[in-house]
């Protein structure tokens, strides 16, 4: 293992150690990192946003209360997904009992029963993409959203944001720099994706 890898490894261990000691700041760090994508995951069980958020919150509280020690961040994340799924299924069951709409329940059940793992993969891909873009400065973020997600050309972006063509290009470059400076293993990958995105649209 090279030195930079082992350094990151140590940081993860430190986080896990603090979590084991019920350090709320450490837990807040984990919450900020994973809460949005767990909401997205919870929403795949056919719930609206408010309910999805309640489910994710409850899942976090469950994890906090459980005395488990986590071997890795990946392990903890997996437990969060499992906990979210459990809470979501319990809520569905409660809903079924209270309103006795069995058809509705089974319809939804079919939809998710075969694919909790697929939904986790989906939440992971989207969660990481979102987190990486969120870390950009406001204007650069806007440029990335417009160019990549909305497929707009540099000229269209310049018109919409009322800035010059050159400024659009500058923001793209600045975004790349910014992403370079937040190199964690997860975000690095997304940095590469955004970088490729820029290349694709830089001619636009």
């Amino acid at each position: 293992m090279n030195s930079s890898n082992s350094k990151l490894f140590n940081e993860e261990n430190y986080l896990l150690e603090r979590l084991a000691q019920l350090d709320e700041d450490a837990f807040e760090y984990v919450f900020e990192k994973y809460y949005p994508r767990l909401c997205l995951y919870a929403s795949s069980f056919g719930t609206d946003q408010t309910l999805a958020e309640d489910i994710a919150k409850e899942a976090f509280i469950k994890i906090w209360k459980s005395d488990k020690n986590y071997k890795s961040l990946e392990h903890l994340k997996n437990s969060l997904y499992q906990s979210t799924k459990q809470v979501a299924l319990n809520k569905q069951l409660a809903l079924k009992r209270s309103i006795q709409r069995e058809e509705y329940f089974f319809d939804n059940q079919e939809q998710y029963e075969d694919s909790p793992l697929h939904q986790i993969i989906h939440a992971e891909v989207m969660g990481e993409l979102y987190a990486a873009i969120q870390k950009l400065p406001e204007q650069a973020k806007m440029v990335v959203i417009l160019s990549y997600l909305e497929g707009k050309t540099n000229q269209e972006i310049a018109d919409e944001m009322q800035i010059s063509l050159q400024t659009v290009k500058n923001y793209k470059l600045r975004a790349i720099k910014q992403l370079r400076s937040i190199l964690t293993p997860e975000t690095y990958l997304i940095f590469l994706s955004v970088y490729k995105i820029f290349e694709k649209f830089s001619l636009g």
Binding site: R37, C39, L40, S43, Q49, E53, M126, L129, Y130, L149
Partner: peptide
Amino acid sequence: KKAFEYLEKIHV
């Protein structure tokens, strides 16, 4: 884009 918009509505 849909996922992004969904995630953006969440107030962490």
